[in-house]
Design a protein around this nucleic acid. Structure first.
Lengths: 224, 224
DNA sequence: TGCCGAATGTCAGTGGCTGACATAATCTTC
DNA sequence: GAAGATTATGTCAGCCACTGACATTCGGCA
């Protein structure tokens, strides 16, 4: 379902009607305009009117595309998360849950990394978003909430892979939540470490791997 | 520092001046009024004006006590979380990190459970809040954000206990985040299970323990 | 008692967000 | 290709969360 990152899909432009294409274009334009405004002036000092005006649509139209101001900022992230879930679903059944999750997230990052290297909707642009989100309380809150919703979906996928009922067995939801926590801490480390930014997606993958490797030791009885 | 739950501290009323006591009273009144309004009408259908009016205070005053509408709803939770951190700090140094965390949270729940059984600010009232938070997107988002801030503090405490630098060693932040995830899933299970509500704090403790016990199995290679 | 500072009230204004209705653009069907 | 059904958009009015500025009142204290 989800294409790598939100911006206009190159294919299937012909099959969709004019109406759908137009909608996609204004949506993308809104996301791009919002991003550049947010990154240059900051989230709080950017009004919805500004965003709408810079795409020549009314404020009312903006709110027909996005439920609120946060959503336009998190749209790219949301697509990336959905893409991760698609990757997870596609993992072979032989892999155990933890293996599948780790494989899915590195695969997701690598795919997104090769898809587009520049411009709005690129990985580097998406990475800039992390800083913005982390430094904007409202955005961080909205992002965390969205993440927990995705975790519920991840838990469902895991339960299905293993033929379990997620209402009864605690492990799917537990693993999904722990996985989410590890990824989040990795993102946090990433945005606190300028060196990691150069490496692009690979740097992020390496960071996530390091954190996963420390998961066992962190939960071990003694840290000595 | 933190007293068990927010409502008026019984002691030290005499030492504080009239001014401070009055402030504490209006603050508590605002929290109580907000809670009963939120629980009866819902969060979204309650205006700040209503809350302020039912305590005979101007809207402007409300916003001098609470930065926003969410804060008044989460005030009790925030105090409880801070109390947990105090419990964690007080754990003996011999305990390993995971032991200390588990001990601290059961201790926190037990203390809060025995402190007050009825009325606003009681544990049962606090438990009702979980449902409200979980069913109110805005509140859930704000709560999750606040939780991650607390996790940073937890990570600092853990690092200090073990004489580590939380900037270098990944384990403190990792364990704090995983712990937060486990507690959150427990809260979620709790609010989805009416049976658990009867047992009060003990029911919650039992749920958290069960989830912790499943943490190892969830992270194990195979689930078969 | 009288002064200082802190808490509160009032007021005006900004900005996010929504419902209702009218208009204009696309899609459909003949 | 025109009529009519859908759907996207604009406009307008309004609610509500939140803020700055200024005036007023109240508690602390000499």
């Amino acid at each position: 379902m989800a294409t790598p990152l939100s911006a206009s899909a190159p294919a299937d432009c012909r099959v969709l009607g004019l109406r759908e294409r137009k909608k996609q274009r204004t949506r993308d334009a809104l996301v791009d305009a919002a991003h550049s405004l947010f990154l240059s002036q900051g989230y709080g000092r950017t009004t919805v009117d500004e965003i709408a005006a810079s795409v020549d649509v009314s404020q009312r139209t903006f709110f027909r595309y996005f439920a609120n101001k946060e959503e336009v900022a998190l749209a790219v992230m949301a697509d990336a998360e959905e893409f991760f879930i698609d990757c997870l679903r596609a993992r072979p059944a032989e892999e155990n849950p933890l293996q599948a999750m780790r494989a899915a997230i590195t695969e997701a990052w690598r795919t997104l990394g090769t898809a587009r290297h520049t411009g709005p909707g690129s990985v580097t642009a998406a990475l800039e978003l992390f800083e913005l989100i982390e430094n904007t309380p409202t955005l961080l809150a909205a992002h965390l909430r969205h993440t927990t919703l995705q975790e519920a979906e991840v838990a469902r996928v895991l339960a299905e892979r293993e033929g379990l009922d997620p209402e009864v067995d605690l492990r799917p939801r537990l693993l999904a939540a722990v996985f989410g926590a590890v990824v989040r801490i990795s993102h946090l480390s990433w945005s606190g470490d300028p060196k990691a930014h150069q490496a692009g997606p690979d740097g992020m993958i390496a960071l996530i791997e390091r954190h996963f490797d420390q998961l066992g030791p962190a939960l071990a009885g003694s840290w000595r």
